[in-house]
Amino acid sequence: MKIRHYLVILGALLLTGCSQPAAKAEIRSGGGGTIVAINHTKWAINHFSVDGQSGIDIIGPYQGGGGGCCYGVPAKWRPGMTVKVDWETGVGYSMDFPGYADEQKFLSWAKKIKAQNKQHSAVVPVPDYTGQKTCGITVHFMPCDEVKVTTSCVSPGRPGYPINEPLQMPEPKVCPK
């Protein structure tokens, strides 16, 4: 019974955190929701944030995830509105994992994997959501380190969802600059 009591309290605290105003309450007074992401690339997203608010999950290649609580958008969209997305990419899988038995081999492998991590940052335009209900923010990580965002309440893949690129997008040989 005690464990159940603690779980109820923990759940209430988590939900209460989502109902609290964001640090910039005067800016984020519109619809609230979570921060989620869809990764259209072969790289893993080791971590990401939107305007400094964590997206929580690691997202594998060609997957979705996130779940950071809570993200609110301004009540009214303004021309030129943007968000800053920071993220780290890394290897999505490793076929040459040596195991843990030989510490030197493992440390050498871990160093090689970590050396492939890259830090990214982009200021991304927020599409006009005038007259629409907003539900947090969904970040789409695209090839060539491009990012798109939406505040749509429509689920990805459903009619009316504004970003319709395929999940498994090939990386071009040369990325536009």
Score class of each variant (00 low, 15 high):
residue 67 G to Y: 05
residue 66 G to E: 07
residue 33 G to K: 01
residue 42 K to I: 03
residue 52 G to W: 02
residue 97 F to A: 15
residue 87 W to D: 06
residue 17 G to L: 11
residue 118 K to G: 13
residue 101 A to F: 04
residue 86 D to A: 11
residue 113 I to Q: 15
residue 54 S to V: 02
residue 68 G to V: 02
residue 46 N to T: 11
residue 42 K to Q: 09
residue 86 D to R: 09
residue 17 G to Q: 14
residue 84 K to W: 00
residue 28 R to S: 11
residue 79 P to Y: 05
residue 137 I to M: 06
residue 127 P to A: 03
residue 124 V to P: 01
residue 93 Y to V: 12
residue 108 S to Y: 03
residue 31 G to F: 02
residue 103 E to M: 11
residue 97 F to W: 13
residue 55 G to E: 04
residue 76 K to P: 10
residue 82 T to I: 03
residue 28 R to M: 07
residue 122 A to D: 10
residue 105 K to A: 15
residue 135 C to V: 08
residue 47 H to S: 13
residue 24 K to E: 14
residue 14 L to H: 07
residue 117 N to Q: 14
residue 105 K to S: 15
residue 133 K to N: 12
residue 59 I to Q: 03
residue 98 P to C: 02
residue 73 V to A: 10
residue 59 I to C: 02
residue 69 C to K: 05
residue 48 F to I: 13
residue 135 C to I: 09
residue 57 D to H: 04
residue 132 Q to K: 12
residue 26 E to A: 15
residue 36 V to M: 11
residue 91 V to R: 08
residue 108 S to E: 12
residue 115 A to P: 00
residue 88 E to P: 01
residue 74 P to A: 09
residue 97 F to H: 14
residue 30 G to L: 08
residue 63 Q to H: 08
residue 9 I to L: 12
residue 110 A to H: 05
residue 120 H to Q: 11
residue 58 I to K: 11
residue 125 P to M: 06
residue 95 M to T: 14
residue 111 K to F: 04
residue 55 G to S: 09
residue 38 I to G: 04
residue 92 G to P: 04
residue 100 Y to P: 00
residue 54 S to I: 01
residue 93 Y to A: 15
residue 34 T to H: 08
residue 38 I to K: 05
residue 86 D to E: 13
residue 116 Q to C: 01
residue 92 G to M: 00
residue 10 L to Y: 07
residue 83 V to S: 00
residue 24 K to Y: 12
residue 18 C to D: 10
residue 110 A to M: 04
residue 86 D to L: 06
residue 66 G to P: 01
residue 76 K to Q: 15
residue 88 E to Y: 07
residue 42 K to C: 00
residue 9 I to V: 15
residue 18 C to K: 06
residue 81 M to W: 05
residue 56 I to F: 14
residue 9 I to P: 03
residue 108 S to A: 15
residue 107 L to T: 06
residue 94 S to H: 08
residue 132 Q to C: 01
residue 24 K to L: 15
residue 122 A to Q: 07
residue 123 V to S: 09
residue 62 Y to P: 00
residue 92 G to I: 00
residue 51 D to G: 10
residue 33 G to Q: 06
residue 76 K to G: 08
residue 33 G to V: 02
residue 94 S to A: 15
